[in-house]
């Protein structure tokens, strides 16, 4: 009970819409750690959160077409998984499913908040700066508690029982399929990221990274980042002045 209350509070802080919430709690990696701490298993929480996070690598905060909600997936996915002793693969599936429902919390937050600018307008008419700032800061927090905190508490409290019941009803081959889903879903995260990063002329570096890892078994990402940075630096240094090249091409045409 107390733990579920803490999960609810965490959900509030996570969605309080400021850099502290974004970078200290929002990402499933962070949320997993905090939830793990609440249930006395910080390392397990971290590992589950990280696994969930991979499926959300391409999640973008600009409010585009995110198939699943990052906030609730990481936080509640870990909260349920850690209580039900799930494998990380199962946790990913549960988390992504929770996030699909969680998307509505974001829409609710944005919609209810849409009443606020009109109140701020009234304060602007009076030249009341403090009033504008208070409306900016306070009422939306109540909205967050309502659309995020309370559902999170309920999910953390009742979720494991429901999920345990569901899992008990699934036959062995279903569980095998379920686990495979958890191993496949990260492909969506990587694919979404590829959509944002890929440039035709630079795609060869993606292939290079894959080849180095697949054939040599090298999967140290920090090492990869250093090599990637070095290649990026060399590539930029070797590039001719673009403006001149373009001008010539146009001349020839």
């Amino acid at each position: 009970m107390i733990q579920a209350v803490f999960v609810g509070l965490l959900a509030w802080a996570q969605s309080s819409s400021n850099p502290l919430g974004w970078w200290l709690i929002r990402e499933p990696l962070m949320a997993g750690f905090w939830v793990g701490l609440i249930y006395g298993k910080p390392v397990e929480g971290l590992i589950i959160g990280a696994a969930i996070n991979v499926a959300f690598l391409g999640w973008n905060s600009t409010g585009g077409a995110n198939p699943s909600d990052l906030y609730s997936a990481g936080l509640l996915g870990t909260a349920v998984a850690i209580q039900s002793n799930m494998s990380t693969e199962q946790a990913v599936v549960v988390a992504v499913s929770i996030g699909v429902i969680g998307n509505y919390a974001w829409i609710l937050f944005m919609s209810i908040n849409s009443m606020l600018p009109s109140i701020q307008d009234k304060y602007a008419e009076k030249g009341d700066v403090r009033g504008i700032m208070l409306i900016q800061a306070i009422p939306s927090q109540a909205v967050v508690i309502l659309v995020r905190g309370v559902p999170a508490f309920l999910a953390a409290f009742y979720g494991p029982t429901v999920i345990d019941g569901l899992l008990a009803a699934v036959p062995a081959w279903g569980i095998a399929g379920f686990n495979t889903v958890g191993k496949v879903l990260p492909a969506v995260g990587v694919a979404m990221l590829l959509k944002y990063m890929a440039r035709k002329d630079l795609l060869v570096f993606f292939g290079l990274g894959f080849a180095v890892s697949a054939y040599m078994g090298m999967n140290n990402l920090l090492f990869g980042a250093f090599i990637g940075a070095a290649m990026g630096y060399i590539y930029i240094s070797l590039q001719p002045k673009e403006v001149v090249v373009n001008a010539r091409e146009e001349d020839e045409i």
């Binding site: 590829l194 290079l208 180095v212 890892s213 990402l221 990637g228 940075a229 290649m231």
Partner: peptide, 11 residues
Amino acid sequence: SIMGLFVLGIM
């Protein structure tokens, strides 16, 4: 992009 794509390939 180069750094990110290379890392993404490993991911």
